[in-house]
Amino acid sequence: MAGFDTKQIWKVFFILLAITVLEFLIALTPALEGLRTDYKLAVNLTYVVLTLFKAFYIIAYFMHLKFEKINLVYSIALPPVFVIYCIVLVLYEGGYWNGIRKENVTSNQKIEQVENHAPEHH
């Protein structure tokens, strides 16, 4: 059956491994510390893109989707479009909540206040 040969499988494994190692390098290399703090968004987007690559390899090769009939490919690959839409909207919404929270932080929400009025904690 197409797409299943041991060589291919190991090749995909090494690609996955390589991407993961790359992610670790970005996350841990001390030299990149400045990059990670200054360009947080860009670094995070890089992670996401690399993750999507990994997802692609898992779905396409391990789950064999690349070699299925095109109908099946579409019916699996298209519904996640809703997910993307949903993610964009809900994250946007999360950012909006963040703005409201920032606006409403009270001046004495800091330590003393909390300490004096600590509620019972579960």
């Binding site: 932080v105 009270t106 929400q109």
Partner: peptide
């Protein structure tokens, strides 16, 4: 003025 729910009824 701002308000904090933890101060209610204190």
């Amino acid at each position: 003025g701002k308000a904090n729910y933890m101060l209610i009824n204190k």
